[in-house]
Every structure is written in C-alpha cells, then in structure tokens.
Amino acid sequence: MRDRIEIYDVLLVVTLIGAAWRALFGKDAFSATVFFIVYGLLMAMAWVQLDAIDVALAEACVGAGLTGALLIGAVRQFERAPGARALRRTMGLRASIGALSLLALAGLTASLFEIENRRSPVPPLVERSLGDSGSAHPVTAMLLNFRAFDTWLEIGVLLIASLAAISIHRLYDPSPIEGRASTAPTRPRLQIQSQTQPWIMARTLLPLLILVGGAMLWFGSHAPGGAFQSGALIGAAGILLQIAGGRSALRLSSLRTRSLLSLGFSSFWLMAAGALLAGGRILEYPPASAGAAILALEAAATLSIALTLNVMYACSRPWGPEP
C-alpha cells in the first residue's frame, strides 16, 4: 500500500481529466460518447490506485461497459437532432455559470483540507466484526451484512427503474396492440444472423462471460467481486446475445421476466421477514449461517441485476426494424 503519489498517478489523472474534457465539451455527440467510455475505463484504473479493487471491477463492468453500451445504442437517435450541438450562447450567462461552477469547485477543494485529518471509526470496527459477518472480504460484508438494508433498497431502485423503462417502452412500441394481448409472439423471439461479427463474438464470449461471472460471484465471499460485478458480466452476455440476435430476445412484460426481475428484491424481503419472525432484528442473520445467507442473497441479486441490465438495454434500442 502506497502513501505517496507517483508519476503514474499524475499521468493517469491528467489523461482522465482530458478524456472528461472531451466527453463534456466536445462538439460531436458521438465522439463525446466514445470519450465518456474512455473516461470510465480510466476511472477504473484510478480505483485500482485507490486500493478499491471491487469498485474498479464495478466501474469497468457497469460504469464504462454497460453505460457505454446504453449510450452507444442511444446516441444515434440524438446526434442528428436539432439542438444536439447547441450551447448557451449568451456570454454573460456562460460567465455566470462558469463562476458558479468555480465556486463549487473551490468550496469542495477547501473541504478536502478540512477532512484531511479526520479518521473514520468504521474500518477498525469492521475488522473486529468480520469474523461474525459470514464473509472474509470487508466490502462484501459491508454490502450484504453490515449495510444490507442499503443494498436491499438499491435493488429496489433497480427494480423500479427497470419497470419504469418497460412502461415507457411499451407506451411507444409501434407493434400492433392485439399482439400484446395474445400469447403468440408478434415478432421472432431471436433471429440470429449467423456468420456476422456480433454472432461470432457472442458465440466465443458467451460461455466465458457466464463462467467468469459465476466465478466472480463465488469469489466475492473472500476476495474482490460479488453480486454487482457478476450480474454485470452475466448481463453483458445477454446484451451480446441481443446484439447478435438483431432484435430484443426478451419478452419484456412476461410473467417470467417480471418475476426474475423482482427475485433479488423479494429474496431480501424474505430474508428480512424471516429474521424478524425468528425474533431477531431486520436482516440480522445468525453468525453460523451468515455465509449461506449472503451467498443466497447474492445469487438472487446477480440474476436480477443481469436481467435488469438486459431489460434496460432492450428498452434503449430503436423501435421498428433494425437497419
């Protein structure tokens, strides 16, 4: 563990700021998107420098990878829109926005010096209670045991966001209304265009992604990894399949999709209710079975997260026939 910065750190943050600059102030929407993905990947490298491997994995899979897939899928619809290059014109307005942003920047930087010498009491506490948590890895113990309530509600946010995306998508889906009511699929469920590049990529990467995702879920109990990173990898496998299939392979509103979407949230709910009925406090697992409880919750959350990301990707694709 290092306590001094090295030249590598300086080069990394300079590149990071440069990529952010192009993503934020570049003229062209498409190149801004590409630089945003670069920014996300550089950010993952910064997390490695901060000794936060779990966050680096999450940032690389979710922050850069899946956000990138969503944005690249969406940018084509926006880049030719009138106003896609518009900036606020008035110099006075620009100057005052700049001044306010600088003020925020100065205030935040000053707060860094303010908090520099305050130590948090949490890490020693975590180290002492790690033995009872059911996980040998502090971040997993934090996410699934000490602060499991936060994780539960976060999975709730994912559920709400995916249901909202489905609703918006369905409202504007131009496929015929009668098709929605009947059980017969109105469109081919999966049209693999064989021998295309996405198909070859999907064929090669799909087993690997699922294998690495499963391994990451398992390793999460004692090493960096866990439900979010694993869910993102398995979700990426599904998205590759969607790209190779040309069309959404998901029936967004089927009972199966909806129940799998809510699996993570309802598992937490059952675990919380079980702990309450057993006479404990909410989401308080007995130390003897905490490891099993964490693994079960993580497995359920992984499936839900993977499907949520797929649903979101499917909802971000253009309507109508693919070009």
């Binding site: 779990d54 979710v62 936060d150 976060e154 966001a161 998508h169």
Partner: peptide
C-alpha cells in the same frame, strides 16, 4: 481502504446506470 465508502460507491455506480437507462428512455 475503508469498505464503507467503497460499498456506497458500488451501490452508487449501479444506481447511476439504472438512472441513466431511465433518463435515456
């Protein structure tokens, strides 16, 4: 590193991707 901010950030990254997807929709 302190696991509490790390857990917060992991949660935040996943919430922000879902918010982005909804915003795009």
């Amino acid at each position: 590193s302190d696991p509490l901010p790390q857990a917060l950030v992991i949660t935040g990254i996943v919430v922000s991707v879902s918010a982005t997807a909804l915003a795009l929709a």
